[in-house]
Amino acid sequence: MKPVNFDYYAPSSVDEALDTLAELGYDGKVLAGGQSLIAAMNFRMARPSALVDLNNVPELSYVKPTEDGGLAIGTMTRVFDVEHSAEVIKRFPLLIEVSKYIAHPQIRRRGTFGGAIAHADPAGQLPSISVLMNMQALIKSKGEERWVDGQDLIIGPFMTVIEPHEMLAELVLKPWPARTGSNYVQVSRQSGGYAQSAVASIVTLDENERCKDARMVLMSVGEVPILSQKAGEILVGNAPTREAIEEVAELAVTTEIDPATDLHATADYRRSITRVLVVRSLTEAVERAKRGG
């Protein structure tokens, strides 16, 4: 299990990286943390002809507060550093909660925040969270840049709107209003393993504990992370009662997901646990919102 050879570029700045990507076009591939890519290369399932390694570009690694109270996270920030960032802990406890489910500690040490999102693994936690939080993705290419909504970034399994000559440079996380609670739950066979189903949710309540906003993403039950419409439709404007949450679960499972049967779970099982996880996740998010987030 040894990788094929490839041309290797180690730019030291974003501009140099973008020049290299522009030059390579379809032959180039960005190497971020490499924790999925290098494993696939060792199996020779991935055979990129050239890698542009961003590990020598320090300007891509940061967690910075934004003026509106949100955060900007550089694409090469290690998951470990996001997990341990005081700025993140303060604003987005969901990211801390989800991090401990991402593979194992050694992978999080090396794996990057942006790399995981751009990899768009349907079973990956961070791609789902980027959809849920609608993180604003800054995509750069030589002399150009564009912003894409997190919910529009992923277009298929392992597929995003990012072109070969482009790179995901930064993710901007908008601040949450007061009385916002969040939660991530998953069922996986083992710690650090792929989830057979996972649900993350963010709920904002008004002063009267009615639901002002409710977002929910369903993971590992379709080819891409599924942003539920039902959570918003049913909960917003109403009290998030047990009955209402159960209705969301019922509708989400019957109308929004399309789980597959694989080695580890039948489609039916996935539906069954998704229903359970939706209830658990929304209930907990509501509780946390009531406690002030």
Binding site: M1, K2, Y8, G34, Q35, I38, A39, N42, F43, F80, A103, H104, P105, Q106, I107, R109, R110
Partner: peptide
């Protein structure tokens, strides 16, 4: 395993424990 699961190749890279089979 050379695919980052077994952990036998774990080393410290700038002080952090990582898989040496998933780094060039």
């Amino acid at each position: 395993c050379e695919h980052g699961i077994c952990g036998a190749c774990t080393i410290l890279f700038d002080g952090g424990a990582v898989r040496s089979c998933l780094i060039f």
